Amino acid sequence: MFKTSQLSIALCCTSALLFSGCQHIIKPQSAPSTAQAEQPNEFDLQGKIGVRTPQQSGSAFFTWSQHQDDFDIELSGILGVGKTQIEGKPGEVTLNSAKTGLITASSPEELLKRATGWDAPITHIVSWVQAKPATLLAKTMQDDQGRIKDIQEDGWNVNLSYNAQQTLPNKLILKQSLADNQENRITMIIQNR
């Protein structure tokens, strides 16, 4: 029972924090202009996320709404079981579920560290979901259509997959190599943008 509870907490926190780090994604426009580039961050995503570590694995469905720097993420299991609510605004991120109660931190990275013990560049997901590296030190590879298909950055290898001619990925696999040929793996499938 304790391991199941730990797994649930780790999955919820990791999932939540991956998304809560994404406070600055701009929904792509067909013809970008200066005026459009200055519009506030507004988007809604739905999909599924899975987390696998050497000790545990699990998955959840997500619904994520972003309004400028504020976000609201709901994670749940099949048929809405095990609902977890994550909300954030600049300087405050909260996670609330029946299993964990309320956890508050000043950043997504701090909340992830408190809840799971993981150190991860959560805010990089902002760029990765947009098929862009987050820093100038990243190494990237492109596919035949010129889209970024791999990003190596801050100890993580991110593989991006696309549907047909889409310019934004519908699947991301984030891998962090660990000792003894083990890894942390996060799989994010975006079903609706």
Rank of each mutant, 00 (worst) to 15 (best):
residue 160 L to R: 08
residue 102 L to P: 03
residue 137 L to G: 05
residue 109 E to C: 10
residue 81 V to M: 07
residue 96 N to P: 08
residue 30 S to L: 13
residue 59 S to M: 11
residue 87 E to L: 10
residue 155 G to V: 07
residue 125 I to Y: 13
residue 130 Q to P: 05
residue 78 I to T: 12
residue 97 S to Q: 11
residue 179 A to C: 01
residue 136 L to S: 15
residue 5 S to P: 02
residue 151 I to E: 00
residue 45 L to V: 04
residue 47 G to P: 08
residue 26 I to Y: 08
residue 38 E to V: 02
residue 112 L to P: 01
residue 72 D to C: 12
residue 168 L to Y: 09
residue 19 F to H: 13
residue 150 D to R: 15
residue 117 G to W: 08
residue 66 Q to C: 08
residue 132 K to C: 03
residue 65 S to D: 10
residue 136 L to Y: 13
residue 184 N to K: 09
residue 8 S to M: 10
residue 104 T to M: 06
residue 120 A to V: 09
residue 31 A to D: 14
residue 158 V to G: 00
residue 24 H to M: 05
residue 158 V to C: 01
residue 48 K to Q: 12
residue 147 R to W: 06
residue 189 I to C: 06
residue 189 I to V: 15
residue 141 M to L: 10
residue 56 Q to F: 13
residue 171 K to E: 00
residue 159 N to C: 06
residue 82 G to N: 06
residue 13 C to T: 09
residue 168 L to Q: 12
residue 121 P to Y: 09
residue 123 T to N: 10
residue 6 Q to M: 05
residue 59 S to N: 14
residue 151 I to N: 00
residue 128 W to G: 00
residue 164 A to Y: 08
residue 56 Q to I: 05
residue 156 W to E: 03
residue 14 T to Q: 02
residue 52 R to S: 15
residue 130 Q to H: 04
residue 64 W to I: 04
residue 162 Y to N: 00
residue 159 N to W: 01
residue 122 I to M: 15
residue 112 L to T: 02
residue 164 A to M: 08
residue 112 L to W: 09
residue 85 Q to W: 06
residue 84 T to Q: 07
residue 76 S to Q: 14
residue 53 T to P: 03
residue 88 G to E: 02
residue 113 K to Q: 15
residue 16 A to I: 04
residue 94 T to L: 05
residue 13 C to I: 00
residue 93 V to P: 04
residue 148 I to N: 00
